[in-house]
């Protein structure tokens, strides 16, 4: 399994020289952790040894319960030494607020970068 689909949320993993994990739609499940953490654990082994880009630009909405599994993923990527770039839409006010905050707290990490595009 490389992709994830639940209601309006879709996450697609494109494997290549750089792996790309793109988020689409809306993340509004009652308990996103129970769905996303097992998925992230599963793909973590696949993407080891290569750079990862996580693209949030096409994500229209996420509830605050989606933040803990994203944080868990970031921690796992850092611990696994996977160089990862998180991109967001800097012209979307909600994305700018959410990801600038995330950027501030990942700055001390060696392998994670957050960029507005």
């Amino acid at each position: 399994m490389s992709n994830f689909k639940d209601n309006n949320l879709e996450i697609i993993l494109e494997e290549g020289a750089k792996n790309i994990l793109s988020w689409y739609g809306k993340s509004e499940a009652r308990d996103p952790s129970s769905l996303l953490i097992p998925y992230f654990k599963e793909i973590l082994n696949k993407i080891k040894g290569k750079e990862l880009i996580i693209k949030f630009e096409q994500l229209k909405y996420m509830n605050s319960s989606t933040v803990p599994p994203i944080i868990q993923l970031i921690k796992d990527l850092e611990d696994s030494g996977i160089d990862s770039t998180i991109t967001y839409d800097k012209n979307s006010k909600w994305q700018l607020a959410s990801f600038k905050a995330l950027d501030t707290i990942v700055r001390a990490m060696k392998h994670i970068t957050v960029v507005g595009v």
Binding site: V67, K75, W94, A97, A101
Partner: peptide
């Protein structure tokens, strides 16, 4: 306050409740 809560989650991630919603309403 939002950032403080994010840091808490980063230091001790707990699946489930984020306890971020009210801070997000005010910040974002």
């Amino acid at each position: 306050l939002y950032m403080e809560r994010l840091k808490e989650l980063m230091e001790s991630p707990k699946p489930g409740e984020s306890q971020l919603g009210l801070y997000r309403i005010a910040y974002e």
